[in-house]
Design a protein around this nucleic acid. Structure first.
Lengths: 214, 214
DNA sequence: TAGATTGTTAATCGATTAACAATC
DNA sequence: TAGATTGTTAATCGATTAACAATC
């Protein structure tokens, strides 16, 4: 692994560290050892030290890690201080739930536009953002700098929407559809969330554990 | 790896195979080789063969795999023919979106009860299921066999709700909260979906790729 | 039969864990 | 100083890829 290049496995663990550190901070805990942190997170102390050391020596020998400092470092590594302007494409059940439920500003994002093609909901508001007609996407994205799109649309319309967004210079996607963006756009930055896949693996686990419905 | 015991990595890939096979079936494609399947899924043919072979010889040398047969096998492995009775705990934005959005019956589940403690929404319907007062949870679960709970509640109430459910014999959870169930209930079957974690890793990727908001 | 393609073993790669010297 | 705990190297473990004999 080239220096500076952090493995995917480590990155995926960072938000969890971040959450636990936030909690420790809320409990006014000033310092923590890799051993103690590992214990509460149910991982090995080795892993904690290896993970954190990817980014440089945040700890102090004989002392441990400063909770607020470590939290802040991880915040910076994740880039949560960003305010990436985002548009939500699709304001159905899932899309509108995300729009009203997620604390975007704490997660590096700033939701500035919501689009849908259903004229029974365009004109409605989610929070203080009006749902616009999808036809306005191009003009909106030319007037506003948009960095990322959240896709909560049916699979069949996804390819065309992604193409439009990509042509507008938007190459980052939070993708709840089953459209395989990377297949068509290899340089896109994509975070896939496939909820039904996760239901299926839960089903597998229950099945395997012998859970019976009767 | 003991025979019959399939690695987590393989399991997590199964839903994706399943989706691609469904699509091939819809295109009336009868057979496919590991090479071709690997090509459309952008993985290695080796991985396809290794993965599928965990469950026994589904292929035929010189021929490939039968699409409908393979699809059905994966369906069985995942246990999607189950109809695990499920309750949704928390009918806020996210919970009600899931209740109306997910095709539970295709994913091994059957949603039979929805609970919330907010009396402004109890009594309302999502589909044909009435949102019940959370107080009814015990009586409902004693009258109906419930195998799994979907948790869409705030973190602070999660420990108590999980304890109640666990005491009712429900040990499987689809967990959207940040409460760490496995910490308190090591034998619980848990599928965690941490949406904000995924936003953070998306933020990291954008940050790392040098996406700028201006 | 010849060609194609699997099932499976062996080789490689990456991630996790263990161990311990460095050092606060 | 002595004890604690990191940073880091080495060992282990698991997952992925390559290779090829088996066989349809």
């Amino acid at each position: 692994m080239a220096k500076g290049k952090i493995s995917k496995s480590v990155i995926k663990r960072l938000p969890r560290y971040y959450r636990f550190l936030n909690e420790l901070e809320n409990q006014n805990i000033e310092r923590i050892s890799s051993n103690k942190l590992a214990e509460i997170m149910r991982v090995t102390a080795s892993q904690v030290r290896q993970d954190l050391n990817c980014f440089g020596g945040f700890g102090h020998q004989g002392y441990g890690y400063s909770v607020p400092k470590l939290k802040e470092e991880i915040e910076n590594i994740l880039g949560l201080n960003n305010k990436y302007n985002a548009v939500l494409i699709g304001a159905g059940h899932l899309g509108s739930a995300l729009a009203s439920h997620m604390k975007f500003e704490k997660l590096g994002f700033n939701l500035i536009g919501i689009f849908d093609n259903n004229d029974r909901i365009t004109g409605n508001y989610i929070g203080d953002i009006m749902i616009q007609d999808d036809k306005n996407l191009e003009s909106f994205c030319k007037e506003n700098k948009v960095s990322v799109a959240f896709l909560c649309i049916p699979k069949n319309v996804a390819p065309n929407e992604v193409k439009r967004l990509y042509n507008l210079g938007i190459k980052s996607f939070w993708n709840f559809t089953h459209y395989y963006i990377q297949g068509d756009f290899p340089d896109a930055i994509v975070e896939n969330v496939h909820l039904s896949d996760r239901m299926m693996t839960l089903c597998y686990s229950m099945n395997e554990a012998g859970v019976k419905n009767e």
